[in-house]
Design a binder for these strands. Structure first.
Lengths: 182, 182
DNA sequence: CGCAACATGTAAGCGGTTACATGATTAC
DNA sequence: GTAATCATGTAACCGCTTACATGTTGCG
């Protein structure tokens, strides 16, 4: 499932511009599928080419036309087909965890800063998720809430684990009695 | 931090062949940084070119020479440098969550099967992590244990969340009184 | 005065995945 | 017999990231 499909799925919630989609990505999707304008705009153009969306240019003052996309019946059928048949993967690529894996080669100060930073970043992500969940004014389906809850649950677990176990990385090995005071 | 750096890091634990590294990736790294031979072999060749590892060919019967790689002092320095200065990212790309996000477009049976499959896959991953953690015979540093524990904690949280909240996706919306019997 | 938000797009480049190529041994 | 394990590599392809390109409005 590529960016095109995700954009098509988002358009199944209602019409939107590329800019709108980017904001949607940032607010609730970023934690499991992040992307940028460089992927979104070409995706929308391709979807329009295939007849899966229509595009209406809304003139604006002092800005490029706002291009509003709407999903077509063909697009909805294609989306259902893709969702019904694709083999959805799930993968994490974390240089952060890789670095921790090699903690024995990382200066202690650096290690501490990185872990502090990561915890802070995760709590920020948590706040962002909860913030966009609160309003409850959306016409979005329950699944959105579900996926945000999933992200929040994982973030909470990650923060807890880091807090409770970082000492395993940060205490000196103590093998070979190095720096033993007594 | 690319595949090259991770391979170099793994070689800081001790000598290994490309094949060995692949097994190491599969057993304990896969959950946060997966890769294949197509990345590992070129990475090792590049590291050898740069003088960060040496390569000793060990002849075998009926098989290609086993090429054993060892990190050099220059390689260790380069590794420390990279780990001390890189900006480690952490990102998840989940088509699975994307699909759940659009659950309103997915046939209920398919949805159930996918969630069941994902839970099963996660529990398998959990068993694999615990299995490779148990032996305790490794000369690997504590950080390895730490990272495996991290993976396990997240998997557990994910399984729990899916179990406890899947009904939110699987019960019909009930809006507009569809299929209301009474 | 400078920065953020609004708004859309192109194109090079990069890293990684996938498929291909080869081939013996061992266990079921 | 047929699948899995051992063992190494090459190369095309592909999608995504990044940088570039442009320009107005409004806020502090």
């Amino acid at each position: 499932m590529d960016v095109k499909t995700v954009c098509l799925g988002l358009l199944s919630f209602g019409e939107a511009s590329g800019y709108d989609l980017k904001k949607h990505f940032e607010s609730t999707i970023d934690h499991f599928y992040s992307t940028g304008f460089g992927s979104i705009y070409p995706a929308l153009a391709a979807l329009a080419d295939e007849g899966f969306v229509t595009c209406t240019a809304v003139p604006q003052e002092g800005r490029p036309d706002r291009k509003v996309y709407r999903i077509t019946p063909a697009g909805e059928a294609a989306l259902r087909e893709t969702l019904a048949t694709c083999e959805p993967m799930h993968k994490t690529r974390s240089e952060f965890l890789a670095l921790l894996y090699f903690a024995h080669m990382v200066p202690p100060d650096r290690l501490r800063e990185l872990i502090d930073g990561r915890i802070a970043g995760m709590q920020q992500g948590l706040e962002r998720l909860n913030a966009s969940a609160c309003p409850a004014r959306h016409s979005w389906p329950a699944s959105v809430q579900f996926v945000q809850g999933f992200g929040a649950a994982l973030l909470e677990a990650a923060v807890r684990y880091l807090r409770e176990n970082r000492h395993l990385l940060e205490t000196p090995p103590a093998t070979r009695g190095r720096r033993r005071v007594a």
